[in-house]
Simulated scan of single mutants.
Amino acid sequence: MLLSWRGRRLARGDVQAVIDRVQRQVDPAQRRSVTPHGLRHTTATHLLADAVDMDAVRRVLGHSDLATLGRYRDELPGELEVAMRSHPLLKPPDRR
């Protein structure tokens, strides 16, 4: 399920229009990989990378459980390393 900016489900024709628009902008060799599921997955990954609240992302995607977002979150490059570097107990000691 894909939602509009107003939180309403997009009709099948609306989704196909989005797919067609994206496919026109993509290299012809990559067009077969542009699918509704791919757009959904990319949307979730970008929202989580931009630190959008996980519950909001869950609702946008129509998932009933936050755990389902784990597959998107796990694909964020370097997310764990960034989190560990920002934790005060894991920072290297200040050498003044």
Rank of each mutant, 00 (worst) to 15 (best):
M1E: 06
L2N: 12
L3Y: 10
L3E: 07
W5S: 13
W5H: 14
W5D: 12
W5K: 14
L10C: 08
R12V: 07
R12D: 02
G13C: 00
G13H: 07
Q16N: 06
V18G: 12
V18S: 13
D20A: 06
D20Y: 04
D20M: 01
D20S: 08
R21P: 04
V22F: 07
Q23D: 03
R24Y: 00
R24Q: 10
V26C: 06
D27G: 04
P28A: 08
P28N: 11
Q30R: 11
Q30S: 01
Q30V: 00
R32S: 09
S33L: 01
S33Q: 05
V34A: 07
T35K: 06
T35Y: 14
G38K: 13
G38H: 14
L39S: 10
L39W: 15
R40M: 05
H41D: 00
T42F: 11
T43C: 06
A44Q: 13
A44Y: 14
T45P: 04
T45V: 11
A49C: 11
V52E: 08
D53I: 02
M54N: 08
M54Q: 12
R58P: 03
V60N: 14
L61R: 05
L61A: 00
G62W: 04
H63K: 04
H63G: 02
D65G: 01
T68V: 00
G70C: 01
G70H: 08
R71C: 01
R71N: 03
R73H: 08
G78C: 11
L80K: 11
E81A: 14
A83P: 03
A83L: 14
M84T: 13
S86E: 12
S86Y: 15
S86N: 09
L90E: 02
P92F: 15
D94Y: 15
R95S: 12
R95H: 14
